[in-house]
Amino acid sequence: MGALIEVVLGGLMAGLLYSLVALGFVLIFKASGVFNFAQGAMVLLAALAFARFSEVMPMPLAFILAALVMVLVAFMIEKLVLRHLVNQEGIILFLATFGITYFIEGAGQLIFGSDIYRIDLGLPKEPKIILESTFDGGILISIEDLVAAAVAGLLVLLLALFFQKTSTGRALRAVADDHQAAQSIGIPLNRIWVIVWSVSGFVALIAGIIWGGKLGVQFSLALVALKAIPVVILGGFTSVPGAILGGLIIGVGEKLAEVYLGPIIGGGIENWFAYALALMFLLFRPEGLFGERHIDRV
């Protein structure tokens, strides 16, 4: 029993980290209808920037500077790419973000270097054992993961407040609902895009710092995006709660499969299991758990 709870808890933590990356996808898709494949590259860039800045200056300053870098990236993407691709089909926009991915990966490593960098947030690495009296052997919990989970939760809360309570948030939701209608009541589309790409750049920065602290900042960080994609399709492209719940389902499912299914069919299944799980859900709800129902009209 203790082992099972440990696995589930580990899965939940990992799932929250996936959600962090997935959130970036959802924010951008909501506001601009772009499925942003470059989110992984943005995580890499943000983490690289933070790691390199924090080598020469105190951490809070490095954080602010890295956030500014992400705002700059958002600005450039709007100015150089999105603006010229208004009204194109989803697939074209999707592929344009591949171009952005290649560009950011190249530029990020060119500017900040392509070695492995460490981010040390000063969190204890040793896992802690709790509830020793209830279960035999207790339950191992990593403090690092716990902090990461708390940060992720806080971020989601902040985003929810931002979307619901501020006027910018209302404008973002309006754009998400209908581009043209939003534009016709005077919401500046271009500025909204810069804002939403900046926000998701900020989310990428948080995700980059947490993931980078765990894995080290290196190229493979960009591949985190491929882990987050099943989370996004499971939760629905347009739903923030979907991203969180999807992340939790995928995280737990993956860990359980690794422990209970892995020994039977051979290890290393975590790469595709998330996709298979997401596909199963999709067969019953084709727009994801919380995605908007799509009604086809002729």
Binding site: A96, G99, I100, T101, Y102, F103, I104, E105, G106
Partner: peptide, 18 residues
């Protein structure tokens, strides 16, 4: 060179799509 290549490749893809 590899990073530059990746950058140019990405930029060209965007350019072509635009």
């Amino acid at each position: 060179a590899a990073h530059l290549e990746s950058m140019i490749f990405g930029a060209l893809i965007i350019f072509f799509l635009i």
